[in-house]
Design a protein around this nucleic acid. Structure first.
Lengths: 245, 245
DNA sequence: GCATGTGAATAGATTCACAGCG
DNA sequence: CGCTGTGAATCTATTCACATGC
């Protein structure tokens, strides 16, 4: 059995949490997990700001839903002292630093395994492609699906997973299989050299140390919403019906 | 982390108190956010355990990836003292308590707004439907799409959002629009009485107090993976290529 | 004996508040 | 003066360790 190190979206794997695992490539401090999770938000906000030809921005104005100015400053301070006191942060420069930190200056070839409804939608999704994440491989177990073209990619048989993952130098795999297949496919991806997995399968699924897995689980998100919904004064349109079946 | 307005978890509705099966009426303490986010995991694990005809389970054995026995015990203790010392937790009973806590004994009608690739995949996704979340309304702005049948639902025009949301008593909305439309649609959903939103649009988007929003953002998840991937000794298949352009 | 339930200890994240500097 | 950068204070979450009770 594996050393368990799964993570849900929002939490990170044991591998990342353990201090000793850190290859301190960058001389600065270890960037806290919570900060890492917010860097993409800053990146996105800065991109939008940059398009509006704004040269410089203060932590106050960068502030976005749920992230106040103090948090912004502390987060950015982990990257280095990239701001100017009395002025703010240079948008272009900060964008560059964040994208370097996030590895967005690189090209990450991605494989999607499981070409059902969701896998197909992900394959067609413009939005990764935009920034460094290019879907290069589609894999499915269904012989009917093998060879079918989605976008400009032909679906490859799962029997060829190992070969094709290695050929394309895939580091990041997207798991969109049924729950039952998730663990086996994750194992095969890892065996083929994949060290980051984004898991859409609604299954408890684990990966060895040294591999990151983030879970995106629609059912879980809805259940969390349901929890808070239930505890709110439900009025108007929000009154749930008693379950029928 | 996720913007969930200050919760009124202490206040427990009369509807909950009404039932007879549990001894202790309502959880004494407020359930921590981190615990709430794990309840669905326990729920799922217990469902699988229950199917294997296991009557009782210890925190040690319930332990799943990333959640150790101590955490399990503390989490479950927030719900009440539902275990038996020296034995463990009764699977059926605990399952019932958790599902009640999560509001899974109810039926939550759901609307999906934005019937593109992703929205369509979500509409066809069996998996919510399973436990209380039933997609009843599909909404899109594209006139070409209005009236088109997906599964057994016809797409409704966004002009009718308010009416149809109220008619179906929608409390939970799923946002799968392009980023540009997200904020406006969120506002309209809230105006129509929706108080929980699951947002798939890659956009900074905010909701007023008293409304929950959870974000599922593929680009962000990939960027977080990329961050850790970059900091790992990238060997074998995992060496990223330099960006070509 | 064995596994829960829980205070106490520790670790981590957020916020405060202000010194420091352009 | 305005805004960053950061120690210190606070709040939240996790882990430990053991008394408690079946």
């Amino acid at each position: 059995m594996h050393k368990l190190s799964t993570l849900t979206a929002g939490a990170c794997s044991a591998a990342e949490r353990r201090k000793d695992t850190w290859v301190t490539a960058s001389p600065r401090r270890r960037i806290p997990e919570a900060t890492v999770a917010r860097l993409p938000l800053y990146y996105r906000a800065l991109m939008e700001t940059g398009e509006r030809q704004v040269a410089t921005i203060s932590s106050e104005r960068l502030e976005l839903a749920g992230v106040n100015a103090a948090k912004v400053r502390k987060d950015l301070s982990y990257l280095g002292s990239y701001g100017t006191r009395g002025v703010g942060y240079d948008v272009e420069y900060l964008l560059h630093e964040i994208s370097r930190e996030l590895g967005l200056t690189r090209d990450w070839p991605v494989a999607i395994v499981g070409i059902g409804n969701l896998g197909r939608a992900l394959a067609n999704y413009r939005g990764f492609g935009a920034r460094g994440f290019r879907v290069e491989v589609l894999i499915d177990a269904d012989p009917e699906l093998v060879g079918v073209e989605i976008g400009d990619l032909a679906v490859v048989s799962i029997d060829d997973l190992d070969r094709v993952v290695r050929e394309h130098n895939i580091a990041i795999g997207i798991l969109a299989t049924p729950a039952a297949a998730a663990q086996e496919v994750a194992d095969r991806l890892v065996a083929a050299g994949v060290t980051s997995i984004l898991n859409f399968a609604p299954a408890v699924c684990s990966v060895p140390d040294g591999v990151s897995m983030r879970k995106v689980d629609l059912a879980i998100e809805l259940q969390i919403l349901s929890f808070y919904q239930l505890r709110r004064g439900t009025t108007g349109a929000s009154v749930p019906r008693e379950r029928t079946g």
